[in-house]
Amino acid sequence: MNKVIPDLKQAIADIQDGATIMMGGFGPCGIPENLIQALCDQGTRQLTVISNNAGTEDLGIGLLLRNHQVKKMIVSDVGQNRTFEELVRHGKLQIEFCPQGTLAERIRAGGAGLGGFYTPTGFGTIAAENKEARAWNGRHYVLELPLRAHFAFIKARKGDPFGNLMYRATARNFNPVMATAADVTIAEVEELVETGSLNPDEIHTPGIYVRRVVPGAHNAKPPRAEPEVRK
């Protein structure tokens, strides 16, 4: 089996206007920046993006926002992003804010074939408005529905031609769960390794979830062997 597509452009060529795309990342970590750049270059518009953050002015999803390619975001925490603020203020971007854990679990439900779940998070707050609420054992829960997407953009440290993936440190974040919840999951890998060279016990995302593997051309972060461990 060989899911490798050597060319970023080719890997995203079938994404059309109006598509819903999940994009991994937490803060500056684990952003599929090469796939996002390729989507900027392709100019696909009217996108719905599901992501934890909205990138910065010049990294990640911020680039798509600046290009006016995004119609709607389902997002948890946008931080300080002036482009995002301006688009929202001028009514050019629809927003659905989601508590971070609820976002993760909605995606998990989407990938795991669940019809939804009841969470205590957000009960009695704006996040629970217009949602069914139930109580069990004296505790209140809110019904949250699953999320799926046409495509998922994943960033992995290593991947093989079977689509098996390994992540690194907190660059893992939403990537493994998003890989499970899209019709077509495209993984951008920092390092493409030979089939059989990854330890099967250490694979985070099994290849069944991944349709395409593409080597990332450029990584904003400097390569580093291991995180600092304080003694």
């Binding site: 925490d77 946008v78 508590p99 971070q100 854990g101 996040a127």
Partner: peptide, 12 residues
Amino acid sequence: HGIGGVMDLACG
């Protein structure tokens, strides 16, 4: 700027 993790933390 969003909700982030604080609702989950507060109730969990």
